[in-house]
Design a binder for these strands. Structure first.
Length: 558
RNA sequence: GCCCUCGUAGUUCAACGGAUAGAACUGCGCUCUUCUAAGGCGUUAAUGUAGGUUCGAUUCCUACCGAGGGCACCA
């Protein structure tokens, strides 16, 4: 429909000799302004040497009748508003009910996209930044799937590097069990603190770091192997709760040697400076970064080159997206500049999407102080809080429901705002399960689901007569028109890689449903009940698919 | 010092250069002898400052003020 209207507008504009160029066409914010609206007359009035309204009226006179459009109006300063026919809207309801992938499109059809996100480090806590990367990355992966792409999920984990040495130092010092993932976080915190506090310990840990890389000390290898496994196993448990299943796992222990090989092959790109090997970003307006330390160890920069190469060899992609905190934005630009010189084919396909930091009133959270709210503890706390309500619900298993609600509450808070911006963490707000929240969407879905179930058990057939204006109850007009926008909302969010654009839509849609639900009795025994239930069925499928794209579970009972 | 983000109701967030700047939370009032009140209905309240570009600016540009992040061997 969207393309059809654009085409019709372009042809009509030819009459005024201003047909060239992209035609703006949007869903007006206010439903009273129609189902589609174009500001093209305002945009081109000057070129056509006409007043905007005059041009708009001329265009409308040229349009004639368009199938599926009941009314075309000129409004405001010169907007051209299109109103769809009940039949066209009813078709959306039917599609929603029949197609499992309702809402999907072809924007990225055939494209192979790898999305890398979460990226926690073994031996360290799973902190809130990982939770954010996971929520955003998972949702972007699903948005891409809904826009037709072939998607692979990748996780990149730092199983070597200074943080590992710090943790192992802590394990030995504190005498904790490296098989216990919870103890490793504490060991790391102790090591990180000691590293900063005195030079002797720093040298000790640096030496340990070298041993981790070359695996020359059997005793350290033993701690390392146990700790790595314990961490990874534990992360898997969290992914299961969060609803992520990775296709590929990459490790720094693998990317480090690859990266080193690449760097050594390009002595003209990377130069020596103070004993280290660096890339001078200044030549492209950036800053210098160290790729190999004076001790000969690869930094994260070098590992990232190795990673990019490894990814493209593992699964040749058209696009590779990496989701990390925006504190790495400038870092990424330098790595990308270096990559352009040494791996140009790969560099042209990689993209960095950054998310903001989750902050408390006191400032940035740090995983180095050891005294933080981790991603895991946040999940646990919210699950506990949700159990009170879950116990009073209709759910078959209150504990599972509580966990689903906790995941919804956290993810929604992350996904409701533009991803580059910091999120001010408000515990009270996160714990609240009302209003503009994940549970609100879940609740709307559960109510719709139960209503359809009830209709089924009462033998009410679901009918939504195609092309019959009576199929849409007058009271549901707004709801149906919003439902019709779902596929385009998904496409819009996918085009911008911005889950919050879909979140905004779903909130508005759920609110429209809740409002309608409060004022209408669906199963009222009249023939129209069949139409109303069919609409509820379409609503629940829209909410279900929408929640799925956000990576939020949609329980059927609450 | 240089670079990158960002300043919108009391608070946390929306608004693809367009129509009356939307929600939610908080406050106050109403609403379950009708399918789930985690719901619904009503009510108050905002674009940091100064310029500029534009028919039109929260959105683009410049300066200032304020917040956050980054800038050589951490990730």
């Amino acid at each position: 429909m969207k393309e059809k209207l654009k085409e019709a507008l372009a042809i009509a504009l030819e009459g005024a000799h201003v047909g060239a160029g992209d035609i703006p066409l949007e869903h007006p914010t206010e439903l009273e302004n129609g189902d589609y609206s174009s500001g093209v007359a305002l945009q081109r009035a000057k070129r056509a040497a006409m007043a905007p309204r005059t041009l708009a009226e001329f265009v409308v006179s040229q349009l004639g009748t368009i199938e599926g459009v009941s009314k075309i109006e000129v409004a405001g300063a010169g907007f051209i508003n299109f109103y769809l026919t009940p039949a066209a809207l009813a078709e959306a309801v039917e599609t929603a009910r029949k197609e499992d992938m309702w809402g999907s499109g072809t924007l990225n059809a055939g494209k192979k996209i790898m999305v890398e996100y979460t990226d926690p480090n073994p031996f360290k806590e799973f902190h809130i930044g990982h939770l954010m990367s996971n929520a955003i990355g998972e949702s972007i992966a699903r948005l891409m799937q809904f826009s037709g792409a072939d998607v692979k999920r990748a996780n990149y984990q730092g199983d070597v590097g200074p943080h590992v040495a710090k943790a192992i130092w802590g394990v030995e010092k504190l005498g904790v069990d490296p098989h216990d993932s919870a103890q490793l976080g504490k060991a790391y915190a102790a090591g990180a603190q000691a590293y900063e506090s005195d030079a002797a310990t720093k040298a000790e840990i640096d030496a340990l770091n070298a041993k981790v890389y070359d695996r020359s000390d059997p005793k350290i290898n033993k701690i390392y192997d146990a700790g790595r496994k314990a961490s990874l196993t534990h992360f898997e448990e969290l992914y299961k709760i969060l609803g992520t299943k990775f296709d590929y796992s990459f490790f720094e222990s693998e990317t480090a040697p690859r990266g080193l090989t690449i760097v050594k092959k390009h002595p003209k790109v990377f130069e020596e400076s103070d004993g280290a090997v660096v890339f001078k970003g200044e030549k492209v307006g950036l800053h210098t970064r160290v790729f190999v330390t004076s001790k000969g160890l690869p930094t994260y920069e070098t590992k990232d080159l190795g990673l990019a190469q490894m990814k493209s060899e593992t699964w040749p992609f058209d696009q590779s997206i990496t989701v990390t905190a925006n504190e790495q934005s400038d870092y990424f630009k330098v790595v990308l500049a270096a990559m352009k010189e040494v791996l140009p084919d790969v560099a042209s396909k990689v993209r960095h999407i950054s998310h903001g930091m989750m902050r408390f009133a006191e400032g940035k959270m740090s995983s180095r102080t050891g005294n933080v709210i981790t991603g895991e503890s946040l999940l646990t706390d919210l699950t506990e809080a949700a159990k009170v309500r879950a116990a009073e619900s209709r759910a078959d298993n209150a504990d599972i429901l509580a966990q689903q609600i906790a995941v919804a509450a956290i993810k929604y808070q992350i996904l409701k705002q533009a991803s580059g911006k910091d999120i001010i963490f408000d515990r009270e707000r996160a714990l609240s399960l009302e209003g503009d929240s994940g549970p609100y969407l879940q609740y709307a879905h559960a109510r719709a689901h139960q209503l359809v179930e009830k209709a089924g058990s009462e033998g009410v057939a679901l009918r939504f007569p195609k092309g019959d204006a009576l199929g849409i109850p007058e009271s549901a007009n707004e709801l149906v028109r919003l439902l019709h926008r779902f596929p385009e909302s998904v496409e819009y969010a996918a085009a911008h890689s911005e889950p919050h654009l879909l979140t905004n839509y779903l909130l508005e849609f759920a609110a429209a449903f809740n409002s309608w639900y409060a004022q209408v009795h669906v199963l009222d025994g009249t023939p129209e009940a069949a139409h109303k239930v069919a609409l509820v069925d379409a609503v629940r499928r829209t909410l279900k698919n929408g929640l799925w794209i956000l990576g939020i579970p949609a329980p059927e009972k609450m």
